Simulated assay, not measured.
Amino acid sequence: MLNAIPNSLKSAIGAGIGLFIAFIGLQNAGVITNNDATLVTLDNITSGSPLLALIGLAITSVLLIKKIKGSMLWGILATMLIGIPMGITEYNGIISTPPSLAPVCFKFDFSEVFTSKMAFTVFTLLFIDMFDTIGTLVGVSNKAGMMENGKIPHVKEAFMADAIGTTVGAMLGTNTVSTYVESASGIAQGGRSGITSFVTALCFAVALLFAPLFLSIPSAATCPILILVGLFMMSPIKEIDLDDYTESVPAFICIIMIPMAYSISDGIVLGLISYVLTNLLCGKFKKISITMYILAALFTLKYLV
């Protein structure tokens, strides 16, 4: 399924995720906010969290341009310190005992396992998780320069790690442990192997004890990183042949729909459907694989049913 996705859409997925990450950063910082008339709008950026986020964006950008090692981490720390006199950074302590998992761990309910409602729920969650993972893998692999002839190496192992994390996390009662788009920040800092993820996992384990300290870091200090990671993820767009509209139109639909639909999976699906329809109506049947036909048909039914 992953290998059936055309290279132009694979490049589009990375760019779309970049816009998505940047939008999340702007939203979490309060720079972009809800507006009933226009859906979104620019908030007051002259004070509070939005101002601190823009200051952090400026500082981190300069450090990045100057090629300072660990520029993103230094940017977060500098922004956090600036937030103290602004009254945004609040000290919550240093060490605390992690809360018990007993209330949520292994709390299963099998009363509706063999029902149509459960089957629909499982299919929906499987679909969302699978295509979010596909989108993230394609996006970060593109950015890392790890794609080999349009294919991701060791993709089975990557999906297995995601599947184990999703299953075990659910059993422990936590939020879904899945491949996350913020992985691109590690790629941007030079991460290219599993050692990066392993060290990150160890740091998260240690961070459990220092949760109060890390919770003192305001979202305005971390959001600039998401915005810049969005920039890094845009580079694959250069590989799309914008003059070939059978490639660029579906790619553009994929890019724009990921942030607009607020869903990586929906953006990929709409891109795949538009790719098949565009090339089919233009008589370019040979460009479309059997797998693409099947996927497009299934995804179309998803929206019709």
Rank of each mutant, 00 (worst) to 15 (best):
N92P: 07
V181N: 01
F210L: 03
F120I: 13
V206S: 01
S111C: 10
T176Q: 06
F131K: 00
M118D: 15
H154N: 14
T115Y: 15
Y180S: 04
S116Q: 15
I88Q: 06
G194S: 03
P98S: 11
I88L: 15
S178D: 10
F108T: 12
M130Y: 07
V140D: 00
K107W: 12
A170D: 09
L202D: 04
I152W: 02
M146G: 10
V177N: 10
I95K: 10
K156W: 05
S183K: 00
I195P: 02
T121A: 14
I152L: 03
L172H: 06
V113T: 08
F159A: 02
L137T: 02
A207P: 09
L202H: 13
V113I: 07
S96F: 09
T97V: 15
K156E: 11
F108A: 07
F106H: 14
E157L: 10
G190H: 06
I95T: 14
S183C: 05
G150P: 02
T121H: 13
S96E: 07
M147T: 05
T124H: 12
A188P: 04
F210R: 00
Y91Q: 13
T167L: 14
A161Y: 11
G145N: 04
D129R: 06
T166C: 10
G194Y: 10
P98R: 02
S183F: 06
F127D: 06
